[in-house]
Structure formats: structure tokens, C-alpha cells
Design a protein around this nucleic acid. Structure first.
Length: 164
DNA sequence: GCCAACGTTGGC
DNA sequence: GCCAACGTTGGC
């Protein structure tokens, strides 16, 4: 999911109540449909566009599936769409909660050098979709590049605690 | 249904 | 600020 940090950054998400936000303002049918396909617990790459540098800066998880975006029928609002109404919302949003802020943002230039990400939608020339799919392999690759928590889970069986 | 004009996105 | 790559609009 893309956002311009000047309008809403991952720091803003970190400061939000319960580190959760609704993803309002999406006004593109393809992006909307991708949000509609999201399920609870789906993980999200959080991307800063129009930033210096443009970068994947962390991850989030879906905590509410798609529901109507009320900013669409709020006259005068920045995201107003005259075709939308309560009865015909047209536009949806999901809620996401912050999972992690990467120690180092993963800039586009770095991502472009990674063979495993060669087909990633984000890196396609002219890719403008603000909500776009990421394959499990791509997601894992990004997490590995980000290092830190989750980088290498110890491959050891969990020991069952015997006392509550 | 075509397509030109226009608006937006977003890297550079 | 430039401009490529879109998506949308509306006349025909």
C-alpha cells in the first residue's frame, strides 16, 4: 500500500490510536478491488511514494476487511465523489495496523537490483496503483532484506511450557 | 465503441 | 519541474 509521507507516513500510523488506521481515499477501481480481496491477518508492505527516497518502510496487517469509505459522499471533502452515496458507496477501505517499521527504509534503487523482485508490480515502469498485490516470495525477500525481527527464525521446536 | 483531451501519479 | 504512463471523461 502506497502513501505519500507528507500526507500520511508510517510514523503517523505509529502515532495513531492502536497504531491502526482506515485506508480511505482510494479512488481507483483496480486498487479498490485489491482491497476487497484482502482478508483479516493479511500482511501489507507500507510504501512511501513521492518521498526521498521512495521506499518500503515497514509492514502492517489487515485488521478490518473492506467496508464503505464515507469520505466519498462527504461534500467538500478532499475525496468527495458525487457519484457515491450511502446507498451506493462505490468506494471501500480497509483498516490496517502497524506491524513493524524497518530499521532502514528499503529504497526503490536497492529493490531494483534484486533478481527475486524482478517481476514485482511496484518496480514495473509506470506502475501507479496505490494498492497492489505482492507475492509471498516477494514479501519474504523484502523481509529478509529488512533484517531484524523475523529475519531468521530459529528452526527449533517450540518447547511446551508445563506450567501456566 | 472510438478516441482526443484532460487530469493524476510518481520517479527522476 | 519534467514527462511517461496511465485512468477518466465526454463528444461523436
Amino acid at each position: 500500500m502506497k502513501t505519500e509521507p507528507e500526507s500520511f507516513s508510517i510514523s503517523d500510523l505509529a502515532r495513531s490510536p492502536r497504531q491502526t488506521t482506515c485506508w480511505d481515499g482510494v479512488r481507483n477501481y483496480q486498487a479498490r478491488n485489491f482491497m476487497r480481496s484482502m482478508r483479516l491477518g493479511d500482511r501489507v508492505l507500507f510504501y512511501h511514494s513521492n518521498a526521498d527516497p521512495p521506499a518500503v518502510v515497514g509492514t502492517a496487517t489487515v485488521v478490518a476487511t473492506a467496508y464503505p469509505d464515507p469520505t466519498a459522499w462527504r461534500p467538500g471533502g478532499h475525496h468527495f465523489d458525487p457519484k457515491a452515496s450511502r446507498d451506493n458507496p462505490i468506494w471501500d477501505m480497509v483498516d490496517i495496523r502497524l506491524e513493524r517499521i524497518f530499521d532502514e527504509p528499503l529504497g526503490l534503487d536497492r529493490l531494483r537490483g534484486v533478481p527475486a523482485l524482478a517481476k514485482m508490480e511496484l518496480l514495473r515502469k509506470g506502475s501507479r496503483l496505490s494498492v497492489q498485490p505482492v507475492t509471498p516470495d516477494e514479501f519474504r525477500t523484502i523481509l529478509q532484506m529488512a533484517g531484524g525481527p523475523g529475519k531468521s527464525q530459529p528452526r527449533v521446536a517450540k518447547s511446551r511450557s508445563r506450567t501456566p
